[in-house]
Structure formats: C-alpha cells, structure tokens
Design a binder for these strands. Structure first.
Lengths: 221, 221
DNA sequence: TCAAAAGTGTTGGGGATACACCCATGT
DNA sequence: ACATGGGTGTATCCCCAACACTTTTGA
C-alpha cells in the first residue's frame, strides 16, 4: 500500500461545476447551463463544463467557485457536491474530477457577464439541446440534471433560481421549467405556504392584473 | 489555470469505504462497521476507516474494493460512492478522500475473515458506539449512516445485508436494525410483496413455529 | 390445546390532485 | 364590463399506519 502512494503523482484532481439558470427563450424561460469552448487539446474547440485544477491549498467548494468564476465570470447562488468521476479511460491522462452542481439566480446572469468582462468562449445551452461535449461531460451534465429534478421535489431549492423577491407564480414557473410539466397553481400555493421555506413580504408586484404578493426565501439551506 | 496543474503533485487521492453489516449482539443483531487500527503516523494506534491510495490505473470503485480487501479481507455485497472529502485541514498533508459506502451480507462476514487470514488490526463496532476515529472519519461514518438510513426507505437495499434466501421477518428485522424502530409485520409484508424487489421461492424455513416462505432478491440494482 | 409466528382483511387519517369558485385589478 | 391572473374552498383518491383477525406449526 505504501509503495502505491508514489504512483499517485500520475493522478491529477480537477473540479468542474454544472450550473443551471433560467434564461429567456421564445417559449418562455428555459432551464439552461453555460459551457466553455476548450482552447487546447484534448478536445480543442469542443464544448465542456466549466472547471479547472484543484489547488493544493484550497477546499473543494472553494475550488469549484474559483474555477467557475475564472472560466465563466459567474458566482453561484447555490452550490453542492454532485459526484466524483474517475474512470481510468475518461481522459487521455488520469484525471479525477470532483463535480459540483449549482444554481444561479436569473437576475444575476447578465449582470455578472457584463461587469466581469464576459468571457468569449462561454455560451448558454438549453438543457434539452446540449451540443457534443468533451470527455464524459454529457453524462455528467445529465447526472446533474437528474439530481436537480429529484432534489427540487422534496426541497425548496428552486427559489435559488429567482431574485430575492418573487411571486408564487414566478416560483411555480421555475418548478415547471425544471420539472418539465405544469403544476396546479392553487395546490402549489398551499404546498409552499405551510412551510418555512418561504416568507411573505408586504410588497406586491403590480402588473397587468391583480397584484401578487412577493415572497422571500426562508432559512437558507 | 495551467500553472496550477503543477501544484497538483502535492495532492494525494485516497479511497475509503464505510461498510455495514449485521452482527450478533446480546440484544439481537446490531448494525456494525469494521475499523482498522492505524499502524503509522499520523494518528498511529487510532481507529480509522478501511482504505488506501488510489492507483493511477484503476477505477474508483475498483480501488474501493481493493483497499477494503487489503485492509479487512472483506468483499462488499453492495457498493456505492458516498461523497468526496477534501478540506485542506482534514489531514496534515493534502489528501482528497473519495469515500464509498457498502453493505456486506451477514453470512459472509465470518467466512471471509477465516478464509483470508483475518487481519489482526480490524474490529467491528456498533454504529451507535464508535470509538474515537482518526482524521474526520467520525463525520464520514455518520454521513454514511445517514445515507444508509435514508436510502433504505425508498429502495430495497436492505436485502444486501442478508444471505441469498431469507424470510420476510428476517428482512423486517434488518430494517428495524437499520432504522432503529419497530415496523408492523403485516404492513411490511404488503409493502414488499407488491414490488419486483423480492421474488418468492417454493422453500420454507422451518423453525419453532409455522414455516415462513423464503424469498430472494429481485432484479439487482 | 396452547403459544407464537405466518399471513389476511378492514378501517381511517393525511397528503396530493383535480377543479369549482370568488377576488382584485388594468383596460 | 370583462378578461386575466391572484387566491380560497372542497371533493376525491391513494398510500400507508394501525390493528383485529385467521392460519399453521411445534411442543
């Protein structure tokens, strides 16, 4: 066992992040994720998940945030470890990738891009229409999407995709975009009103019709 | 980003496994896990989870099985990745630990120990009475226990702790040991009879009272 | 014939869905 | 006034926990 620790030098540790956000599309908001076009081999010119090498002196989640910021200029609203991919043949050299999944509030997407000098090689893609991806990144992206769809069911994570204040209809539309199906407005309201995940405010959103009460996220997860 | 890849040499990748099994105790079967007494610094003489260094040419799950076998002579009946722990300060040197959790059929525990020349530094502990553990291994063990208890709820994983054939009462006792509470025998039966997780056989276990039908696991997960 | 475990049947509460309905506002 | 989305009330279904009950065996 001790002899093997020397072979360890041949293993490199990377961190990648699958970060989701809602972006406007012709048929309403769609769930999307940013990809980075690779500028070097292997897979030069192919789309890949944002990420980079783990530093020797930084925690894993810090590395996820840093490499995400370096490649896309984005800062996640929610971040959680997803899975570690380490098959021998997933890359020409041995790379173990610790993958995170994240959410980005929809109001911060364009803000961050403009302030931080939007990287040229970044583009957002509909989760249902991803291009060809480098390495095993398609499998990783789909795994992350599964996790999001499952996790959104029993937790109230979805509010992480919205600004600080939002109406119940907006939140319901997030669920509908994530889950890919319609939800009953009245049942949706009851489901969330009872919990402490949501805190009602005294403000209302005025629009074309009856004003809707604004809510905030409750206790942060 | 590219410059950082050289610093990567300072990071070592380890694989550890939290493996559960049922073992006889004065008050019935208890959920237990094996620990290994460390024979070198840091934490020499302290109990730790079985594990070892990842080889450059082996997949992660293979490494988990290999290091588990090397340290405890055990072969898991079920194995699944748990989480990757990589805080900078979790060890004096930088170690990223990819942790697996596993189940071992109760009929194989002692068989494996006797055939493979039971390692001296291995001992089984009740999950509710763990000794002091090296590094952050207590946190890891408790995280694995959480995962087991949650996962057993919506899947039928628990059968992985039993021999090939078992009665419903035996399976229920596994659930009770894992979850730490009593379950209604009749409801338990109905819950599992409907699924394809269990396949009834034509054999019966004869004992002190009315014979009970034996079951096998259904489609492997 | 009795104790104990195997196995069946019945009931009721809670959560989720479906949907009828009223409310408030801009046009 | 009316269209539209905001918001409330309620019937129904289904899952599942509780528990009474019958069956089968060993002693």
């Amino acid at each position: 066992m001790s002899a093997r620790s020397t072979e360890n030098d041949a293993i490199r540790v990377a961190v990648s992040t699958v970060i989701f956000s809602l972006r406007a599309a012709p048929d309403g908001d769609r769930l999307m994720l940013p990809l980075v076009r690779r500028t070097r081999d292997p897979h030069r010119g192919v789309w890949a998940l944002p990420g980079g090498w783990l530093d020797a002196d930084e925690d894993l989640d810090v590395a996820a945030s840093r490499t995400l910021a370096e490649t896309t200029a984005l800062t996640p609203s929610y971040l959680e470890q997803l899975y570690t991919f380490g098959d021998v043949d997933r890359s020409p050299t041995r790379v173990v990738s610790i993958v995170y999944w994240a959410l980005l509030r929809s109001d911060l997407v364009d803000t961050q891009r403009s302030t931080a000098g939007a990287p040229e090689n970044v583009e957002w893609f509909d989760v249902d229409a991803l291009p060809a991806l480098a390495f095993d990144h398609r499998r990783i992206a789909e795994y992350a999407l599964d996790r999001l769809r499952n996790k959104v069911g029993y937790s109230r994570i979805a509010a992480g995709l919205l600004p600080d204040e939002f109406t119940l209809t907006e939140l319901r539309e997030v669920y509908e975009a994530v889950l890919g199906r319609r939800l009953d407005p009245s049942n949706f309201r009851r489901l969330l009103e009872g919990t402490d995940e949501l805190v009602p405010t005294e403000s209302f959103r005025t629009g074309k019709h009856r004003p809707a009460r604004l809510y905030r996220r409750g206790r942060e997860a």
